[in-house]
Simulated assay, not measured.
Amino acid sequence: MSKNGLSKQDSDPFLTRYGLTCEEAYPVALALYRKERDYLELTYGDKNNLSAFYKQATYGGFQPEKAPTSGWLDFVGNDRRKAWEQLGTLSTSAAKAGFCQLMLKTSGKSFEAAMMKAKRDKFNRMERERVAQREAERKKREEAEAKKNDSSNVTLLSHHEEELEKERNQRASVYEQQQNVLQKQHEGVKVDLAPAPAAVARNSSTPTTTESSYPTSAGNHCVKSTAQASQAALSTGSTGNGSVTRGNQEVPPALLASAAAAIWTRPGVKEFTESTECKNVTVNRSDTLYIRVPIETLSHSVFWQFATVDYDISFAVDFYPGQLPAEEKNAFDPKNRILEPRRVNSHEEVICGSHKPTQPGYYVLHFDNTYSYLRSKSIYFHVYCAP
């Protein structure tokens, strides 16, 4: 062994052999020495040199105050003190390398096993650090992309809201135009009916004010109400034989129900369902609700408005001349259909419609939910008669 305890080989041979620097190998070698020093085959000089390397790596050059006081007869203490003094100004890294080389020489396989375990631990630690770094970089990229997407979504949402606002305005404009046309048509009906007061008088013998709606046990509804609004109608008059005239043509009673009903939509489902004039009923799944509306004077039309909650519904209207039957019957004649069945998006828009009768009778409003096997439908409706 040379004066400084180092061999002539490279000062850091453990990096090539074990993938560990001397700084990393020294704690492993020191732990192995403390664990197995009673079982290692060390000479007296090896023990003194290991002690000297340890003190040099821990405190640096020889410091008398760090060396234990030994008497003349303390041969071991004096020898270890001299070994530390002989290291002189050896650097701490060189002292650690000397300690590791001496442990490799004296412990052999135990040192090799400890170094390989430390190498595996280092590799696993570095792998965990790489994984953690990649995960941090991935999260950073995702956050950047999320911020970018949020900015794009805000722009798209703003554009979508603008489109919806334009659509609402267009619907409101169309609805206003329809109301103006209906108002003008209604004023035209009043003028056409003026020359035939006798016919109107014969058909107006029954009072027009009746009681409010009531439900029946069979799931049907009969609706009677006072005049609240106006609607377009055909110019009609009555003849003495029970027929009805349209213009200059006479229409027999059998063809009265063929006149199609008017139907349109308007926005404002939420406001409509919250209004006090609406009644609420439920149509069970795979079932149909019928609402009967008697008309006892030709000077009135029937109007309907309805909306549903969350889902659509199929809707149709029939007109039957004559008196409302005492017993509720659900057998209907397609020939009396004035509005063909159709599925309407009544959960998105309020469905409105009207029809002008040409002789006394009653209407049947069909709310058909037979196509839905899972969901019942909640309907808010308002049916009324008006001149």
Rank of each mutant, 00 (worst) to 15 (best):
Q101I: 14
L298R: 11
H366S: 11
K377S: 06
K3C: 09
T297A: 03
E271N: 14
N124P: 00
A113Y: 08
N241V: 06
K3I: 15
K140I: 05
E23T: 03
R266E: 12
P267F: 01
E328T: 12
F367T: 08
F306W: 07
V364P: 00
A257W: 01
G71D: 15
G322C: 01
K148H: 10
G60E: 03
P197S: 01
D310R: 13
W84T: 07
V350Y: 02
P195D: 12
E167M: 13
V350G: 04
K47L: 07
L193S: 05
N153M: 15
Q179R: 10
R37P: 00
A95P: 01
N369A: 09
D333Q: 07
T209A: 06
F123G: 08
L104C: 13
S378V: 14
C352A: 12
T265G: 03
L324P: 05
R337N: 00
S217R: 12
C352K: 02
S212N: 04
A201G: 08
A194Q: 14
E165T: 10
K105P: 03
I263K: 05
V244R: 07
N220Q: 15
V244G: 06
S238I: 14
Q63C: 07
L90C: 13
R130C: 04
L324D: 05
L73S: 13
L104W: 13
F332S: 02
I291A: 15
Y290P: 00
N248P: 04
A326W: 04
C22L: 10
R130Y: 08
L193W: 15
C22G: 11
L157S: 09
G19E: 06
V223T: 15
E23S: 11
A199D: 10
A257E: 04
L42D: 03
A196F: 15
A25C: 07
D368G: 08
H186D: 07
P387Q: 02
Y18D: 05
R37W: 09
Q323T: 07
R246E: 13
V283C: 14
E176F: 04
P334S: 05
T21W: 04
A254Y: 09
P334F: 10
G353A: 12
A232I: 06
Y380N: 14
S110E: 09
T239G: 14
T16E: 13
K66W: 03
A97K: 05
P387R: 03
A259H: 09
S378H: 11
K96N: 07
E187P: 03
S2T: 14
S372I: 07
A257D: 05
L87C: 10
F319Y: 06
K109H: 13
P360D: 02
L339S: 01
Y214C: 02
Q133M: 05
L40I: 03
N345A: 12
T239V: 15
V174L: 13
G188P: 00
A83Q: 01
Y320W: 09
N284P: 07
F367D: 09
T226A: 08
F62M: 02
A229W: 10
E277Y: 12
Q56V: 02
T276M: 06
N369H: 09
K139D: 09
V131H: 11
K35R: 15
D287W: 11
Q170S: 11
P357F: 01
S110A: 12
L157E: 13
D368K: 10
L104Q: 15
C100G: 13
Q249R: 12
N284L: 12
Y175Q: 05
L42V: 06
G188N: 08
G247H: 11
Y320G: 07
T288R: 08
S7D: 15
T206S: 14
P357D: 01
H355E: 04
